[in-house]
Simulated scan of single mutants.
Amino acid sequence: MRGVFIDANDSLAEIFERQRQAGDPPVRVHLNPNITPEQWPEILDGAEIGIVDHTALPTDVARQCKGLKHVVFLGTGARSYMNPEELAELGITVHLIKGYGDTAVAEAAIALMWASARGLAQMDREMRAGNWLRDDGMQLTGKTLGLIGFGGIAAEVARIASGSGMKVIAWNRSPKSHPGVTFVNLDELLATSHVVSLHLLLNDETRGFLSRERIAQMRPGVILVNTARAAVVDEAAMIEALRSGHFRHAGLDVFNIEPLPADHVLTSIPNVTLSAHSAFRTPEASENLIHAAWEHCRRLAGG
């Protein structure tokens, strides 16, 4: 069984080759992170396993990938790039990698929260333009952080936030418990949280989860942090909440269109801090990610 890492960047390619072991299945690294979806069939060249970082795999393109049986997606958000159910009908199984970057993403969420509370990005922009912008920030000690969705990343966010003196509450679609975290119903979380951080996987049930109606329920002056998937939020309603001041600020790492176009409305709203879908990007997380990808390949090749 052959494999191809179809869209490797320099960093991931180096880690991938360093982790290669004697006896591993043959996996070729295609060193180009900027391929188009239409290039899948040519790059795979009949291989049964495709390892992919961020390139979309439309179902009609997958039909042209003769021999493809397994897609190893480097992360958990495959639904943003392909339709796993439609691929399954073609005999192609999508494999996810969970937990590799829980701490990395959690630290990024915390960083976006603090930057949003103190307006750091806006002050930085203004000072570079020669303006001495000073404004009152939000002190987070003693404030309530509401976590929507509670998996490994949210647990790490809770650990860090609790250590900084915040009260942490959470809502999850299935019952959970966690030390130091109070689980509440969604209405209570939306109404009482000074900061809301999203940690939902994207699927048919969570698409548009933070709707216009739920945004209206949120506490005036709330900070929204999203390191999950952009599509769990009604973008138009979020933009209105930012412009009206209902949202104090938003710290966003994920977007409906990536890369975010330079003329996108979010780039012109002052009370937004943007990061380029990079919450998971640390050397430690990348090592974990590639190790898991190799483990998938070894398991699949071994039958």
Rank of each mutant, 00 (worst) to 15 (best):
R2M: 12
V4N: 03
I6P: 01
I6S: 04
I6C: 05
N9C: 12
D10S: 14
E14D: 12
Q19S: 08
R20W: 09
P26Q: 13
H30E: 07
N32V: 11
N32A: 11
N34C: 07
E38V: 15
D45K: 00
E48R: 04
G50A: 15
I51L: 15
R63K: 15
Q64V: 04
G67I: 10
L68F: 08
L68I: 10
V71T: 06
G75A: 13
T76Q: 13
S80H: 06
N83M: 00
A88I: 02
H95C: 11
L96Y: 06
I97Q: 05
K98Y: 14
K98E: 08
Y100K: 01
D102H: 09
L112S: 13
L112D: 00
L112Y: 08
M113P: 02
M113K: 01
A117V: 11
R125E: 14
R125M: 12
M127G: 00
L133G: 04
R134W: 01
D135C: 11
D136C: 02
G137V: 09
K143W: 09
I153G: 03
A154P: 03
R159Q: 10
A161P: 08
S162V: 01
S162Q: 12
V168Y: 11
I169S: 05
N172T: 04
S174Y: 08
G180K: 06
T182N: 09
F183N: 07
V196Y: 06
V196T: 14
L198H: 04
L200Q: 10
N203D: 15
T206L: 07
R207F: 00
F209M: 02
L210V: 15
L210W: 02
S211P: 04
E213M: 04
E213D: 15
I215Q: 03
I215P: 05
P220I: 09
G221D: 01
G221Y: 09
V225M: 02
A228N: 06
A231N: 12
E235T: 15
A241N: 02
A241W: 12
L252Y: 11
D253V: 06
F255T: 06
N256V: 12
A262E: 14
T267P: 01
T267Q: 06
S268W: 04
S268L: 07
N271E: 08
S275M: 15
A276D: 07
H277L: 07
A279R: 00
A279F: 12
P283R: 04
E284I: 08
S286Y: 14
E287V: 15
L289D: 13
A292F: 13
A293L: 05
A293F: 09
W294R: 08
R299N: 10
L300M: 10
G302Q: 14
G303N: 11
